[in-house]
């Protein structure tokens, strides 16, 4: 009973922090839209051309924007020792990571959902592509949250080389993009690709708490 209450408290705190930080999350969304504008300016406003590459652009910019919030993932809680205190109250690091991934998914990635219909409108995407995009983004962003967790925990003690965390997320997001964008190809089988994505999300949800917790413990030992 106490345990569930603790998890509930954790989410309440994350929710409060989310409302305090809401500006930074909307800044990410703004970054996303501005990059779309940059793309359109760079490629020219040819409607057919944009329509055919719109989905790919939206997906790659979503991945890029999600690397922006990478350093916020654990850094503050790690530096001020909240992670240790929460752990000392009976929650293992693996579970903390799992909860953090869920809260990152809910409070950082899900707000991006409101930007997707607007972005699709800008590219005149056909309606079934928008549905597919929203559906794949919900699953894909869960994978991105797992990847962000691993990359952020890997770079907790990295004070000099900021870009490598983003590089790692981009590297492992390659399969996510392949399968998410592949859904819209004419001869692709929707069901099997969605199953692959869900399978990947489950695998990453299994791996990343273990890996991130190992990195966090490593960083705590050498803080």
């Amino acid at each position: 009973m106490f345990f569930i209450k603790k998890i509930f408290l954790f989410f309440k705190r994350e929710l409060k922090l989310f409302f305090r930080n809401i500006v930074s999350i909307f800044s990410n969304i703004l970054f996303f839209f501005l990059s779309i504008f940059i793309f359109v300016f760079a490629l020219g406003a040819d409607e057919q051309n944009l329509k055919s590459i719109g989905l790919g652009i939206i997906w790659s910019l979503l991945v890029l924007s999600s690397t922006l919030s990478l350093r916020k993932f654990y850094e503050e809680d790690f530096n001020n020792g909240v992670l240790v205190i929460i752990h000392m109250r009976g929650i293992s690091y693996e579970l903390i990571v799992f909860l953090k991934i869920l809260s990152h998914f809910l409070f950082v990635q899900v707000p991006f959902l409101i930007s997707i219909p607007v972005a699709s409108l800008l590219f005149n995407l056909p309606i079934y592509e928008v549905y597919n995009l929203i559906f794949t983004f919900i699953i894909g962003s869960l994978i991105l949250s797992c990847l962000s967790s691993m990359s952020a925990s890997m770079n907790l003690l990295n004070k000099a080389n900021f870009s490598i965390g983003g590089i790692i997320v981009l590297l492992f997001s390659v399969p996510v993009i392949i399968f998410s964008v592949g859904i819209n190809e004419v001869d692709s089988d929707f069901k099997s690709l969605i199953n692959i994505l869900i399978g990947m999300a489950l695998i990453f949800l299994g791996i990343s708490p273990w890996a991130s917790a190992a990195f966090i413990k490593l960083a705590l030992r050498n803080k």
Binding site: K16, N79, N80, G81, V82, I85, R89
Partner: peptide, 29 residues
Amino acid sequence: YNEITYIADHNTSSRELSILDNIKFWKGL
């Protein structure tokens, strides 16, 4: 751990939350 309170040499309270929020969090935890 259930018998211990640990006060580190740096601040453990979250910068962006109020005193009341922090106290509620620690107390519940």
